[in-house]
Simulated scan of single mutants.
Amino acid sequence: MFGEIESFLSLFDRVKKFLKSHVNPSSDLSTRLVQLYEAHGVHRNQIPKVIGQGLTLHDVSTDERLLEKLTDKILSSTCQLFGINRDWLDGASDEIYPTYNFYKCPAKFEEFLSSLLNKSGSDCLDGVLLSVDKVDRGTESVLILQETIGSINEKPYYRYYLCSGWVLSYWKSRGYISACVAMCWKNNVYVHGMYLDKLTVDKYAHGNHLLDFGYNGVHQLNGIRWYAEDLALVPETYLKNIDPEKNQFGLNAALSLWFQLYHQGYLDTGYTDKSVELSFNHAREKLA
Protein backbone atom coordinates (compact mmCIF):
# COMPACT_ATOMS: atom_id res chain seq x y z
CA MET A 1 0.00 0.00 0.00
CA PHE A 2 2.71 2.45 0.99
CA GLY A 3 4.58 1.56 -2.19
CA GLU A 4 1.52 2.41 -4.27
CA ILE A 5 1.13 5.76 -2.48
CA GLU A 6 4.80 6.54 -3.03
CA SER A 7 4.51 5.67 -6.73
CA PHE A 8 1.42 7.87 -7.07
CA LEU A 9 3.14 10.83 -5.38
CA SER A 10 6.19 10.38 -7.61
CA LEU A 11 3.97 10.36 -10.71
CA PHE A 12 2.11 13.42 -9.41
CA ASP A 13 5.37 15.33 -8.97
CA ARG A 14 6.47 14.48 -12.51
CA VAL A 15 3.13 15.60 -13.92
CA LYS A 16 3.36 18.89 -11.98
CA LYS A 17 6.85 19.55 -13.33
CA PHE A 18 5.73 18.75 -16.88
CA LEU A 19 2.73 21.05 -16.67
CA LYS A 20 4.80 23.84 -15.10
CA SER A 21 7.35 23.66 -17.91
CA HIS A 22 4.65 23.68 -20.61
CA VAL A 23 2.21 26.29 -19.30
CA ASN A 24 4.28 29.14 -20.67
CA PRO A 25 7.67 27.86 -21.78
CA SER A 26 8.48 31.16 -23.50
CA SER A 27 8.62 32.88 -20.09
CA ASP A 28 11.82 30.93 -19.42
CA LEU A 29 13.46 32.96 -22.19
CA SER A 30 13.38 36.23 -20.25
CA THR A 31 14.37 34.41 -17.06
CA ARG A 32 17.44 32.93 -18.74
CA LEU A 33 18.36 36.30 -20.22
CA VAL A 34 18.31 37.98 -16.79
CA GLN A 35 20.31 35.11 -15.29
CA LEU A 36 22.85 35.47 -18.06
CA TYR A 37 23.39 39.19 -17.52
CA GLU A 38 23.62 38.88 -13.74
CA ALA A 39 26.04 35.94 -13.94
CA HIS A 40 28.36 38.02 -16.12
CA GLY A 41 28.31 41.07 -13.87
CA VAL A 42 25.27 43.10 -15.00
CA HIS A 43 22.46 43.57 -12.45
CA ARG A 44 18.88 43.31 -13.70
CA ASN A 45 18.37 47.07 -13.29
CA GLN A 46 21.48 47.73 -15.38
CA ILE A 47 20.40 45.65 -18.36
CA PRO A 48 18.88 48.64 -20.24
CA LYS A 49 22.26 50.42 -20.06
CA VAL A 50 23.91 47.50 -21.82
CA ILE A 51 21.19 46.47 -24.26
CA GLY A 52 19.84 49.91 -25.10
CA GLN A 53 17.25 49.56 -27.88
CA GLY A 54 14.65 51.52 -25.92
CA LEU A 55 14.44 49.23 -22.91
CA THR A 56 13.50 50.93 -19.63
CA LEU A 57 13.77 50.02 -15.97
CA HIS A 58 10.06 49.30 -16.01
CA ASP A 59 10.56 46.85 -18.87
CA VAL A 60 13.10 44.79 -16.89
CA SER A 61 11.36 45.01 -13.51
CA THR A 62 9.82 41.54 -13.99
CA ASP A 63 10.52 38.62 -16.30
CA GLU A 64 6.98 38.88 -17.68
CA ARG A 65 7.38 42.54 -18.70
CA LEU A 66 10.78 41.86 -20.19
CA LEU A 67 9.39 38.99 -22.26
CA GLU A 68 6.98 41.39 -23.97
CA LYS A 69 9.92 43.58 -25.08
CA LEU A 70 12.29 40.90 -26.30
CA THR A 71 13.11 40.94 -29.99
CA ASP A 72 15.35 38.76 -32.10
CA LYS A 73 17.80 41.66 -32.30
CA ILE A 74 18.05 41.87 -28.51
CA LEU A 75 18.55 38.13 -28.19
CA SER A 76 21.14 37.92 -30.95
CA SER A 77 23.13 40.91 -29.70
CA THR A 78 23.13 39.47 -26.15
CA CYS A 79 24.49 36.15 -27.38
CA GLN A 80 27.15 37.92 -29.42
CA LEU A 81 28.13 40.14 -26.49
CA PHE A 82 28.66 37.26 -24.06
CA GLY A 83 29.67 34.54 -26.50
CA ILE A 84 26.64 32.42 -25.65
CA ASN A 85 24.97 29.74 -27.73
CA ARG A 86 21.64 31.07 -28.98
CA ASP A 87 20.07 27.61 -28.72
CA TRP A 88 20.60 27.70 -24.94
CA LEU A 89 18.95 31.09 -24.62
CA ASP A 90 16.03 29.79 -26.71
CA GLY A 91 15.75 26.74 -24.43
CA ALA A 92 16.72 24.29 -27.17
CA SER A 93 20.11 23.20 -25.81
CA ASP A 94 21.95 22.66 -22.52
CA GLU A 95 25.22 24.00 -23.92
CA ILE A 96 25.66 27.59 -22.77
CA TYR A 97 29.21 28.32 -23.91
CA PRO A 98 31.12 26.98 -26.89
CA THR A 99 34.30 25.23 -25.81
CA TYR A 100 37.68 25.40 -27.51
CA ASN A 101 40.06 22.46 -27.69
CA PHE A 102 43.76 23.13 -28.30
CA TYR A 103 45.08 19.74 -27.21
CA LYS A 104 48.31 19.09 -29.15
CA CYS A 105 47.75 22.38 -31.04
CA PRO A 106 49.85 25.12 -29.39
CA ALA A 107 50.13 27.03 -32.68
CA LYS A 108 46.34 27.27 -32.92
CA PHE A 109 46.13 28.48 -29.34
CA GLU A 110 48.75 31.11 -30.16
CA GLU A 111 46.56 32.32 -33.03
CA PHE A 112 43.47 32.29 -30.82
CA LEU A 113 45.20 34.28 -28.09
CA SER A 114 46.58 36.74 -30.64
CA SER A 115 43.06 37.41 -31.97
CA LEU A 116 41.81 38.14 -28.44
CA LEU A 117 44.73 40.46 -27.77
CA ASN A 118 44.15 42.33 -31.02
CA LYS A 119 40.52 42.81 -30.07
CA SER A 120 40.77 43.78 -26.41
CA GLY A 121 44.42 44.04 -25.30
CA SER A 122 46.11 42.30 -22.39
CA ASP A 123 44.74 44.76 -19.84
CA CYS A 124 41.26 43.32 -20.40
CA LEU A 125 42.26 39.65 -20.27
CA ASP A 126 43.23 37.27 -17.51
CA GLY A 127 42.44 33.69 -16.68
CA VAL A 128 42.34 30.73 -14.35
CA LEU A 129 43.15 27.05 -14.75
CA LEU A 130 40.72 24.89 -12.78
CA SER A 131 41.94 21.43 -11.80
CA VAL A 132 41.94 18.84 -9.03
CA ASP A 133 44.93 18.40 -6.73
CA LYS A 134 45.47 14.67 -7.22
CA VAL A 135 46.28 12.04 -9.82
CA ASP A 136 42.99 11.72 -11.70
CA ARG A 137 42.79 10.56 -15.31
CA GLY A 138 38.98 10.91 -15.27
CA THR A 139 38.64 14.65 -14.69
CA GLU A 140 39.01 17.25 -17.43
CA SER A 141 40.54 20.55 -16.36
CA VAL A 142 39.55 23.82 -17.97
CA LEU A 143 41.41 27.02 -18.80
CA ILE A 144 38.97 29.93 -18.54
CA LEU A 145 40.00 33.21 -20.12
CA GLN A 146 38.07 36.18 -18.77
CA GLU A 147 37.64 39.26 -20.95
CA THR A 148 36.42 42.54 -19.46
CA ILE A 149 34.02 43.85 -22.11
CA GLY A 150 32.62 46.89 -20.31
CA SER A 151 31.84 48.48 -16.97
CA ILE A 152 28.93 50.13 -15.19
CA ASN A 153 29.65 52.44 -12.26
CA GLU A 154 33.27 51.26 -12.38
CA LYS A 155 32.23 47.62 -11.95
CA PRO A 156 33.28 45.39 -14.87
CA TYR A 157 31.26 42.81 -16.70
CA TYR A 158 32.74 39.90 -18.58
CA ARG A 159 32.86 37.46 -21.43
CA TYR A 160 34.41 34.01 -20.98
CA TYR A 161 36.30 31.61 -23.23
CA LEU A 162 36.48 27.97 -22.14
CA CYS A 163 39.49 26.01 -23.31
CA SER A 164 38.75 22.44 -22.26
CA GLY A 165 39.75 18.86 -22.98
CA TRP A 166 42.81 18.84 -20.71
CA VAL A 167 43.41 15.82 -18.46
CA LEU A 168 46.24 17.21 -16.37
CA SER A 169 47.28 13.83 -14.98
CA TYR A 170 48.05 12.65 -18.52
CA TRP A 171 51.56 13.62 -19.60
CA LYS A 172 50.58 14.93 -23.05
CA SER A 173 47.88 17.18 -21.66
CA ARG A 174 50.31 18.47 -19.04
CA GLY A 175 52.84 19.50 -21.67
CA TYR A 176 50.41 21.27 -23.98
CA ILE A 177 48.44 23.10 -21.28
CA SER A 178 51.78 24.29 -19.88
CA ALA A 179 52.57 25.77 -23.29
CA CYS A 180 49.20 27.57 -23.42
CA VAL A 181 49.65 29.03 -19.94
CA ALA A 182 53.21 30.12 -20.78
CA MET A 183 52.03 31.90 -23.94
CA CYS A 184 49.43 33.74 -21.89
CA TRP A 185 51.99 34.95 -19.37
CA LYS A 186 54.43 35.97 -22.11
CA ASN A 187 51.67 38.24 -23.46
CA ASN A 188 50.81 39.66 -20.01
CA VAL A 189 47.62 37.63 -19.75
CA TYR A 190 47.99 36.39 -16.20
CA VAL A 191 46.61 32.89 -15.67
CA HIS A 192 46.38 31.59 -12.12
CA GLY A 193 45.85 28.05 -10.95
CA MET A 194 42.95 26.94 -8.77
CA TYR A 195 42.59 23.52 -7.16
CA LEU A 196 38.94 22.59 -6.61
CA ASP A 197 36.97 19.46 -5.88
CA LYS A 198 36.09 17.20 -8.81
CA LEU A 199 32.39 18.15 -8.82
CA THR A 200 33.17 21.87 -9.17
CA VAL A 201 35.72 21.34 -11.94
CA ASP A 202 33.28 19.09 -13.81
CA LYS A 203 30.59 21.73 -13.33
CA TYR A 204 32.51 24.38 -15.23
CA ALA A 205 34.56 22.32 -17.71
CA HIS A 206 32.02 21.57 -20.41
CA GLY A 207 30.15 24.83 -21.00
CA ASN A 208 26.83 23.63 -19.55
CA HIS A 209 26.77 25.85 -16.47
CA LEU A 210 26.70 29.63 -16.19
CA LEU A 211 30.02 31.05 -15.07
CA ASP A 212 28.25 32.92 -12.30
CA PHE A 213 31.21 34.79 -10.85
CA GLY A 214 29.60 38.21 -11.35
CA TYR A 215 31.54 41.30 -10.35
CA ASN A 216 34.19 39.31 -8.52
CA GLY A 217 35.58 37.43 -11.50
CA VAL A 218 36.80 33.87 -11.74
CA HIS A 219 39.45 34.27 -9.06
CA GLN A 220 36.86 34.43 -6.27
CA LEU A 221 36.18 30.70 -6.51
CA ASN A 222 36.55 28.94 -3.19
CA GLY A 223 39.62 26.83 -3.92
CA ILE A 224 43.35 26.58 -3.34
CA ARG A 225 45.37 28.96 -5.50
CA TRP A 226 48.66 27.95 -7.07
CA TYR A 227 51.09 29.42 -9.59
CA ALA A 228 50.05 28.08 -12.99
CA GLU A 229 53.04 29.72 -14.70
CA ASP A 230 55.27 27.35 -12.73
CA LEU A 231 54.09 24.56 -15.03
CA ALA A 232 56.59 25.95 -17.51
CA LEU A 233 59.22 27.02 -14.98
CA VAL A 234 59.44 24.56 -12.07
CA PRO A 235 59.92 20.80 -12.61
CA GLU A 236 58.20 19.91 -9.32
CA THR A 237 55.06 21.80 -10.36
CA TYR A 238 55.17 20.48 -13.91
CA LEU A 239 55.40 16.86 -12.73
CA LYS A 240 52.98 17.13 -9.81
CA ASN A 241 50.00 14.75 -10.05
CA ILE A 242 51.05 13.29 -13.40
CA ASP A 243 50.15 9.61 -13.66
CA PRO A 244 53.63 8.01 -13.54
CA GLU A 245 52.43 4.94 -15.48
CA LYS A 246 54.51 1.78 -15.71
CA ASN A 247 58.25 2.18 -15.14
CA GLN A 248 57.85 5.97 -14.76
CA PHE A 249 56.95 6.25 -18.44
CA GLY A 250 54.46 9.07 -17.84
CA LEU A 251 57.00 11.23 -16.01
CA ASN A 252 59.78 10.64 -18.54
CA ALA A 253 57.45 11.29 -21.47
CA ALA A 254 56.24 14.49 -19.82
CA LEU A 255 59.79 15.76 -19.49
CA SER A 256 60.62 14.84 -23.09
CA LEU A 257 57.58 16.80 -24.24
CA TRP A 258 58.61 19.76 -22.07
CA PHE A 259 61.99 19.93 -23.84
CA GLN A 260 60.36 19.58 -27.26
CA LEU A 261 57.96 22.46 -26.58
CA TYR A 262 60.71 24.50 -24.91
CA HIS A 263 62.96 24.30 -27.96
CA GLN A 264 60.00 25.21 -30.17
CA GLY A 265 59.62 28.40 -28.13
CA TYR A 266 56.23 27.60 -26.62
CA LEU A 267 57.32 27.55 -22.96
CA ASP A 268 58.73 31.06 -22.72
CA THR A 269 56.72 32.87 -20.03
CA GLY A 270 58.73 36.07 -20.31
CA TYR A 271 60.52 35.03 -17.09
CA THR A 272 62.37 32.05 -18.58
CA ASP A 273 66.16 31.93 -18.51
CA LYS A 274 68.90 29.32 -18.83
CA SER A 275 68.47 28.19 -15.22
CA VAL A 276 65.00 26.84 -16.07
CA GLU A 277 66.39 24.46 -18.69
CA LEU A 278 69.09 23.38 -16.25
CA SER A 279 66.52 22.57 -13.55
CA PHE A 280 64.50 20.44 -15.98
CA ASN A 281 67.68 18.68 -17.09
CA HIS A 282 68.36 17.89 -13.43
CA ALA A 283 64.84 16.51 -13.02
CA ARG A 284 65.36 14.26 -16.05
CA GLU A 285 68.67 13.00 -14.67
CA LYS A 286 67.01 12.11 -11.34
CA LEU A 287 64.48 9.92 -13.15
CA ALA A 288 67.12 8.15 -15.26
Rank of each mutant, 00 (worst) to 15 (best):
Q80E: 15
L130I: 10
K119P: 00
L129V: 08
L67I: 01
I47N: 05
Y97Q: 04
E95F: 04
P98Y: 09
N101M: 07
D126G: 13
S93A: 13
T148E: 13
R137A: 07
Y100I: 02
D63K: 14
V42T: 07
G41Y: 09
I84V: 15
G127P: 08
K49C: 01
E95N: 11
S76D: 13
L130Y: 14
F109P: 06
E64P: 00
R86T: 08
V132S: 08
Y37W: 09
I144K: 03
F112I: 07
L70C: 08
L145Y: 10
R86H: 11
K134L: 11
I47G: 05
V135G: 00
Y103Q: 08
E64N: 07
V135F: 00
F109L: 07
L66P: 06
A39M: 02
E111I: 10
D133W: 01
P106K: 04
I96N: 04
V142H: 09
D123L: 11
S114C: 00
L33M: 15
T31D: 03
V50C: 03
P106S: 03
L67Y: 06
I74W: 08
C105Y: 09
Q46P: 01
G83C: 00
L129M: 13
I144G: 03
S120M: 02
Q53T: 00
Q46I: 01
R65T: 12
N118Q: 14
H43F: 10
L81V: 03
L36K: 03
D72Y: 12
L33E: 02
T71V: 07
L81D: 05
H40R: 13
L89H: 10
N118Y: 03
C124S: 15
V42R: 05
P98V: 01
N45D: 13
V60K: 07
S122R: 09
G138S: 15
V60T: 03
L145R: 04
G41C: 11
K104S: 10
L143G: 08
I149C: 08
S131F: 03
G127D: 11
S114K: 13
T62Y: 04
D63H: 14
G138V: 11
V42G: 04
G127T: 05
G54C: 09
C105I: 05
L143C: 08
K73L: 14
T139F: 11
Y100N: 13
D87I: 00
E110I: 01
T148L: 04
